[in-house]
């Protein structure tokens, strides 16, 4: 019988796994051929939703346990490499880690919570990660994103929950472009939208 101190998601075999935007790989590649833009899916990343009072001892223990203090400034990212913490709300973060890290991460977080009121939910399959990078990345996103993406305003280290076209996304700014965390059921819509918005920047191949 499960209880809240045990990881909700279970270790899973790899065979038969399919990512939400898998069908778009070839079209993403074609749209990226021009050089000014790169579209891709990064499948199967670990994503763990964390809710905890940022002022609680549990929040501090969690920061220590994962080696990344939870960012408290709205719309910012802490950490990097194998573990990033994205601010989603005043008591909510999503932690990003490589494929397969979810069970271990959930266990570490739950242990660090030490019985305090904390929500740790594996949401790795809830959203997939799309990359929109290259010189024209901002131009493409500006077709559907109402945020000011100027590097002075939304540069590396910033993230935002917002909408792209008609889909909710978590937008993460990097050095070479952006990552979009997209709900799995919306992945096809967002992929189609990105491909369509890329036509002017990627050459006719993207519309194939």
């Amino acid at each position: 019988m499960a209880d809240s101190t045990v990881a909700v998601s279970m270790a899973v075999p790899i065979a038969g796994r399919r990512s939400p935007a898998a069908a778009y790989a070839a079209r993403f590649e074609a749209a990226s051929a021009g050089g000014g833009l790169r579209l891709a899916e990064i499948p199967f990343l670990t994503q763990v939703n964390l809710r905890v009072d940022p002022k609680s001892p549990a929040a501090e223990r969690i920061g220590t346990a994962i080696g990344v203090p939870l960012p408290v400034e709205p719309g910012t990212v802490a950490g990097g490499g194998d573990l990033e913490a994205l601010w989603l709300g005043p008591d909510e973060w999503v932690l990003l880690a490589p494929d397969g890290a979810a069970p271990g991460l959930v266990a570490r977080l739950t242990e660090a919570a030490g019985g305090e009121h904390v929500s740790v939910v594996d949401v790795s399959a809830q959203r997939t990660t799309l990359v929109v990078a290259g010189d024209r990345a901002r131009d493409v996103l500006a077709h559907g994103c109402t945020l000011d993406l100027h590097p002075r305003v939304f540069g590396p280290g910033r993230c935002a929950q917002t909408t792209l076209a008609r889909a909710g996304v978590v937008l993460v700014a990097g050095e070479d472009g952006f990552r979009l965390l997209v709900r799995s059921s919306f992945a096809g819509y967002v992929a189609e939208w990105l491909l369509d918005a890329s036509v002017e920047y990627a050459g006719p191949a993207a519309g194939a």
Binding site: P74, G75, A160
Partner: peptide, 9 residues
């Protein structure tokens, strides 16, 4: 929390 955003959000 997030600063100014469009009404549609």
């Amino acid at each position: 929390w997030c600063g100014p955003r469009d009404e549609a959000e």
